[in-house]
């Protein structure tokens, strides 16, 4: 009950003084330092909850791949011959083309986002569809290359070379697969006109995730295939 009794006696006292002294209260030296009595009204957050949450998730993903990449680099930097003798080289030309396919899907995703920002529903659907298609092509090409590599005798069990390659590239592939499924869900929703120029958080989040998996690929390509 303590908090409630603070003000009243003080106010009574000053009420008594009011009859004798003019009610001019000189500003106390403390008062100048004190915060203004009423704080400013709450502002809209700089980054919305959904996007901030997504950024956190992407930070988690980045550290996860950081762990896998760290393991890869430990073996890669210590190796004299990479690939180790008797192990096949990774496909170069096909993967360059595949990289181009995945990177262009990043562009089409941005285009889809720009379309919905202008309220262009068909542009959104086209953008999402093309992006999902390019992602699927990327996965298909990679799957085909994996089949060829396995035929050459490179498997998960063939030493650190096979272990790191399949784990790292496979983890990225699973992420692309998940992102393609998400894109298809968003595409289905956009076909029902779920999104508007003002409210399209779902597209934004999916776009952020897609940008992450696309942006991660050149790093993996450079380190695993080219280096």
């Amino acid at each position: 009950m303590a908090g409630g009794t603070v003000a009243d006696p003080v106010l009574d006292e000053s009420g008594l003084h009011l009859t004798e002294v003019p009610p001019v209260v000189p500003p106390s030296p403390h008062e100048a330092d004190l915060p203004p009595p009423s704080p400013p009204p709450r502002k809209e957050p700089f980054v919305s909850n959904a996007r901030l949450g997504m950024l956190m998730f992407l930070a988690f993903e980045a550290m996860f791949f950081g762990g896998l990449l760290g393991a890869f680099l430990v073996f890669r930097l210590a190796a004299v011959h990479w690939p180790p003798p008797g192990q096949p080289y990774l496909p170069g030309v096909v993967t360059w083309i595949n990289t181009g396919i995945l990177l262009s899907s990043g562009v089409t995703m941005r285009r889809a986002l720009r379309a919905i920002r202008d309220g262009n529903q068909s542009g959104l659907m086209n953008g999402l569809g093309v992006t999902a298609l390019l992602g699927a092509i990327f996965l298909a090409v990679q799957g085909g290359e994996w089949v060829r590599l396995v035929r050459y005798g490179l498997t998960l069990t063939s030493g650190t070379y096979g272990s790191t390659f399949y784990t790292l590239i496979g983890c990225h592939g699973v992420h692309v697969l998940g992102a393609v499924v998400w894109l298809l869900v968003i595409l289905l929703q956009s076909a029902r006109y779920r999104f508007t120029a003002r409210d399209h958080v779902g597209v934004q989040l999916c776009g952020m995730y897609w940008t992450f998996v696309v942006g991660l690929w050149p790093v993996l390509f450079g380190l695993v295939y080219l280096y």
């Binding site: 956190m56 930070a59 988690f60 993903e61 980045a62 550290m63 996860f64 791949f65 950081g66 762990g67 896998l68 393991a71 998960l156 069990t157 030493g159 650190t160 096979g162 272990s163 790191t164 399949y166 784990t167 983890c171």
Partner: peptide
């Protein structure tokens, strides 16, 4: 936790792969 646990997750995944899939991390 956000930045440290994923590193453990990746290590646990590698350990599981070593145990179950025959990798050699």
């Amino acid at each position: 936790l956000l930045l440290a646990l994923p590193v453990l997750t990746s290590a646990l995944a590698m350990l599981l792969f070593d145990r179950m899939l025959g990798t050699s991390f």
